[in-house]
């Protein structure tokens, strides 16, 4: 299954802007390439990436075929309170990949 890597500071000061880096392994077949036999590889991508912070959506990305293999994202959020961030990727085939990280606000 998809390997998820998330980089986020474990602790942060109140209202500090923290950088979050995420990487998920996925072929992101865009539907325009062909395999060795000349057959077109059908589209199979992650179409949505959502990040919630204690249930509140803080980042929402609609991913498109132009997204590279193994989607990598760097974005930011304000560390408002101690809590859990949930990272969710939605696949074209209906699969849902998700992972969580906790952040402690000092």
């Amino acid at each position: 299954m998809a390997t998820i890597r998330i980089s986020i500071p474990e602790t942060a000061a109140k209202d500090e802007i923290v950088e979050i880096r995420t990487l998920i392994s996925h072929p992101m077949d865009n539907g325009y390439n062909v395999d060795a036999r000349g057959q077109r590889i059908p589209r199979h991508i992650l179409h949505t990436f959502i990040v919630t912070y204690n249930g509140v959506e803080v980042f929402h990305a609609n991913l498109h075929p132009a997204q590279s293999t193994n989607p990598y994202m760097v974005f930011h959020t304000v560390a408002v309170e101690t809590g859990t961030l949930e990272f969710t990727w939605l696949d074209d085939d209906g699969s849902v990949f998700s992972d969580t990280r906790t952040i402690t606000v000092q």
């Binding site: 802007i17 912070y53 803080v58």
Partner: peptide, 12 residues
């Protein structure tokens, strides 16, 4: 809630 309007990624 983002704090900073900056997003990096890799594209085709």
């Amino acid at each position: 809630r983002a704090g900073l309007a900056e997003v990096s990624t890799r594209i085709r």
